[in-house]
């Protein structure tokens, strides 16, 4: 069992969320600090779906760290994203939806992109390489690691529960817990404009 690295971030968030007049559906990160770097450049062999958070400046970005063999939590979250996108209507312009695989053993960037597109054609997907994964986990204070034997095909991957929301200025603003309905996600995104 790894130490709970998300705990400090969460306790700050929970302590300050109470100060907001109308409650947000997500957990407000206050003060908003610049989002940590997120670089999925791929390798020469698997260059598909290169993504850097820095290049998304000007858009609100939802980021979810998961894996494509995840049949329960990841589809639930991405389906809620799809409902949020529908609820946003025209307001969806300027929002990017990015699924980031933290399972470098099984997922290529193309696998992650195909997985994300199942939920909405506009959803982006990419996969971190082994080398890219460690700094991202450290900078985002999140955990992701295989559970079970990664040499067998049936291992699972522990991964962050929440979706992260980065605003157009590149600041980390919200953590949306799993199970928050699409309409509520849409409300929070509208408020972030």
């Amino acid at each position: 069992m790894r130490p709970p690295r998300l705990a400090p971030l969460l306790s700050i968030a929970l302590g300050l969320a109470a100060c907001v007049d109308r409650p947000w559906h997500g957990i407000v990160l206050d003060p908003a600090t610049p989002a940590p770097p997120l670089v999925a450049a791929g390798t020469a062999e698997a260059p598909a779906s290169r993504f850097t958070l820095a290049s998304a400046r000007g858009s609100r970005v939802l980021v979810y760290f998961g894996y494509t063999h995840c049949p329960d939590v990841c589809p639930t979250t991405l389906a809620d994203w799809a409902r949020a996108r529908r609820a946003l209507g025209a307001d969806t312009l300027g929002v990017r939806w990015v699924f980031v695989s933290v399972d470098p053993t099984r997922d290529t960037p193309a696998d992650a992109a195909a997985y994300a597109r199942q939920f909405h054609p506009s959803f982006e997907g990419t996969a971190l390489t082994d080398a890219e994964l460690a700094p991202v986990l450290r900078d985002w204070s999140i955990a992701a690691y295989p559970e079970g034997d990664p040499r067998t095909p049936d291992y699972t991957v522990a991964h962050p529960a929440h979706s992260f929301v980065v605003d157009a200025e590149g600041r980390l603003r919200l953590m949306i817990p799993p199970g928050v309905p699409g309409d509520s996600i849409a409300e929070d995104l509208r408020r972030l404009r």
Binding site: A7, L9, L10, C70, V73, T156, A161, H162
Partner: peptide, 29 residues
């Protein structure tokens, strides 16, 4: 599926009790 300190985990459930006169829902999350 279980959430523990911000991280999601999945594990096998070798025995799922269905008590008499009760319902058990298998649902997302």
């Amino acid at each position: 599926t279980m959430q523990h300190e911000g991280t999601m985990h999945m594990s096998a459930l070798p025995a799922l009790p269905v008590p008499a006169g009760d319902e058990v829902s298998l649902a997302p999350l």
